[in-house]
């Protein structure tokens, strides 16, 4: 077991980096979607509200693995068959496994981020908006300068947890051949026939990674806190 670990740790490290990269890109997409989604959910515009609610309901309901299949196996070939050139070009990047994984996980997680950011914004007292407006700030300026920065501090811990969930979810990308941690474990298992060792080592990597991330999130959380006493 020790020798086994020694032999494969470098490979697992490489897989971990890929997993982290995919998770980070997915999370960036997720937060971007979440911010827009939250503003849409809280908007006075009825269409914006229904579109964003539908998005949340829809993508929270789809298992990420199903979404990944749709995005990677479904969309590019569908556009190809349809023969609409611009659409095919637009979706061509999804032939890249990593790109597909990022889009699928980002769009899936975006539904959760939308809810996290929406409730963070809602947790800021409406008096903050009034104070900003009484200074002559427009709604959007007040959002940008006063409400969103405060909400970001509130949203940070749950978004940190969401990032950890996304990171664990990247193991699904192994099914489309992204050589992240889980995929590496599968390859090792196939080559050595030592299933238990191969997957246990992967499990250990995930656990350690998550513990590290959790402590980083905790530290940042304290630093970003609105309480200064």
């Amino acid at each position: 077991m020790i020798q086994f670990a020694k032999d494969y740790i470098p490979l697992y490290f490489a897989g971990t980096l890929v997993a982290l990269g995919v998770a980070a890109l997915s999370m960036a997409l997720s937060v971007g979607i979440g911010l827009l989604g939250a503003l849409g959910r809280m908007s006075g515009n009825r269409t914006a509200r229904s579109v964003t609610s539908a998005y949340v309901a829809f993508f929270r309901g789809i298992p990420p693995l199903v979404l990944l299949y749709v995005v990677y196996f479904g969309l590019p070939s569908w556009a190809q068959e349809l023969g609409v050139r611009p659409l095919a070009d637009f979706l061509a990047p999804l032939n890249n496994r990593i790109m597909s994984a990022v889009v699928a996980f980002g769009v899936n997680s975006g539904a959760y981020s939308t809810e996290i950011i929406r409730s963070a914004i809602a947790s800021i007292h409406p008096e903050q908006m009034e104070a900003a407006q009484s200074l002559g700030m427009s709604y959007w300026l007040a959002m940008r300068r006063i409400i969103v920065p405060q909400s970001a501090r509130v949203a940070f811990p749950p978004l940190g947890n969401e990032f950890i969930a996304v990171l664990k979810g990247t193991s699904l990308a192994s099914v489309i051949g992204v050589t992240e941690l889980m995929r590496d474990a599968q390859l090792v298992a196939a080559a050595t026939f030592r299933n238990l060792a191969a997957y246990t080592l992967a499990a250990v990597f995930y656990v350690v990674l998550v513990i590290i991330l959790q402590s980083v999130v905790g530290r940042l959380e304290r630093r970003l806190s609105l309480v200064h006493k």
Partner: peptide
């Protein structure tokens, strides 16, 4: 305008 609850920007 000055409010009962101050409403300073805490961040």
């Amino acid at each position: 305008m000055v409010f009962q609850q101050f409403n300073l920007f805490p961040h």
